[in-house]
Write a protein that binds this DNA or RNA. Sequence first.
DNA 1: TATGTAAATGCACTTCCTTTGCATTATTTT
DNA 2: AAAATAATGCAAAGGAAGTGCATTTACATA
Lengths: 121, 121
Amino acid sequence: MRLLIYKFLAEKKVAVTLSDTENAFVKADRTTLYRTIKTFVENDIVHQIDDGTGTIKYALCEVGCSCDIKTDLHLHFYCSNCNETVCLTDHKIPQINVPEGFISENVNLVVKGICNKCSSM
Amino acid sequence: MRLLIYKFLAEKKVAVTLSDTENAFVKADRTTLYRTIKTFVENDIVHQIDDGTGTIKYALCEVGCSCDIKTDLHLHFYCSNCNETVCLTDHKIPQINVPEGFISENVNLVVKGICNKCSSM
DNA sequence: TATGTAAATGCACTTCCTTTGCATTATTTT
DNA sequence: AAAATAATGCAAAGGAAGTGCATTTACATA
């Protein structure tokens, strides 16, 4: 099961929701998928993305990704046309300055707009 | 009613959820608050913040804010200790480069960590 | 091979939040 | 004052995340 889900995520180029996975695996129960992905997340195999749509999306981490805040934070692009979220893994998040007293532990950067596929149509 | 809600938002220094507002106005109905805030959002009086907690938060726009992508996008800081989200209006979001073909319309940047209040305790 | 233990699965249910439909009440306009 | 428009409240729907428990499957070891 886990292998199947892993494969599914690997084939998808975009981040998927739990429902997406559910639709892909009609036979399996929602809970199984939920917990499997949760296991993946806990083991840094996939990362969660909150793209502002209200539903969490998941995507495989890059090869060699350690989910480390300093090196592995890339930005995500949410297309408001096709509703897909892609990982722009080559685009690391720039250094963000926070005021005195604030300690930053994590950064989430989502760019919303039209993706390359939709803009070329 | 709208004036009251506006005042409430103005007094709050942090972004609030719908529930927060609900607790502040026990007499008013949830729907009224919801719709009022929605109206505010549509008229660029407040902006929505998705800080990754799963519940949308709202905060007044700055004076003179036109919710314009080029000038008014500031970053938000979510404190994982006190669960509060503050607008760092002085910290504009840096220029984000997206690949060829992508058209960016909006940028959402949330830094997660410990806020100044909590770090000094 | 039998069997005991741990992990994985499925079902049902709960909870939380957002959103909408509809009837009622208030407010404005003519 | 009557008509039109807007605002409110109640109820309920809808979506999604998460949990408890029982059952099944897999695995290791005696």
